[in-house]
């Protein structure tokens, strides 16, 4: 039903999105907590920085990544020398680009949900003998799960659709960084590729709808479970 090329693009897209979102989750929760519950000097600036990818042109962000993480960039050179990891032209690079682009959506959703958690419940937990870390893990985090789930979904879908930063930073390498949007773009560059492009577009739509429906179902189950 699907051509080998389509399967390659689809599985690569999923792999990139899963890795990007998976690796963003822990820092996403930490930063959401910082923004929701802490006051520190420069918080507004930090907040702006986290949300920067939302307003920056993806190509510009891809270029910034290239400068930082490219072979000769400060971080890229270090990664290459010490861990022999190269991000450019690799699916890891695509995952990094996708992760950076999707990060604000993840943080925003978790943060809003965390701000909605009744702090009086946290106080109650402390009077019952729980230290702050335990309160966070047993009260705050479970009550934030609907927001975490929503954030994960938004970020995941954003990763699937990532184009500009990926093509700028990780390039368009078949089987390595050519995700669905990049494959679609490539098909359009070839004369007579409209049929392939249409199939890829439908594939993207199907994927996005599946993700949305699944996450809504999960969110409902979860809300029921945590008694909200």
């Amino acid at each position: 039903m699907l051509s080998p090329l389509e399967i390659a693009a689809l599985s690569l897209s999923l792999k990139v999105a899963v890795w990007a979102v998976g690796c963003s989750l822990a820092p996403g929760i930490a930063i959401a907590w910082l923004l929701a519950r802490r006051d520190f000097p420069g918080k507004a600036l930090f907040d702006g920085l986290v949300h920067l990818p939302l307003v920056l042109p993806p190509v510009a962000l891809g270029y910034l990544l290239l400068v930082l993480f490219g072979r000769n960039g400060p971080v890229g050179a270090w990664l290459h020398d010490w861990f022999d990891i190269s991000l450019v032209f690799s699916w890891r690079g695509a995952a990094l680009a996708a992760a950076v682009m999707a990060f604000p959506l993840l943080v925003r959703s978790i943060r809003l949900s965390m701000e909605a958690v009744d702090r009086r419940l946290e106080t109650a937990a402390r009077t019952l003998g729980a230290r702050p870390l335990r309160v966070f893990l047993t009260i705050t985090l479970p009550l934030t799960t609907p927001g975490i789930l929503t954030g994960l979904l938004l970020a995941f879908v954003r990763c699937l659709g990532e184009f500009g930063a990926t093509i700028t930073f990780a390039a368009n390498v078949p089987g390595e960084t050519r995700t669905l949007p990049l494959a679609l773009y490539t098909a359009l560059q070839v004369p007579g590729g409209e049929a392939d492009a249409t199939r890829l577009a439908f594939l993207s739509v199907a994927l996005a709808i599946t993700a949305l429906v699944a996450s809504q179902y999960l969110a409902r189950q979860l809300s029921k479970r945590i008694g909200l």
């Binding site: 009086r120 419940l121 106080t123 402390r126 009077t127 019952l128 479970r225 008694g227």
Partner: peptide, 27 residues
């Protein structure tokens, strides 16, 4: 607060919504 070992019953019970009654009791 967690080191004081004083029980506190608040005006608005402040039960944990994600736990059952048993879960709340044994918290």
């Amino acid at each position: 607060p967690e080191a004081r070992r004083l029980g506190y019953v608040f005006q608005e019970s402040r039960l944990f919504p994600h736990l059952t009654v048993a879960g709340n009791l044994s918290y």
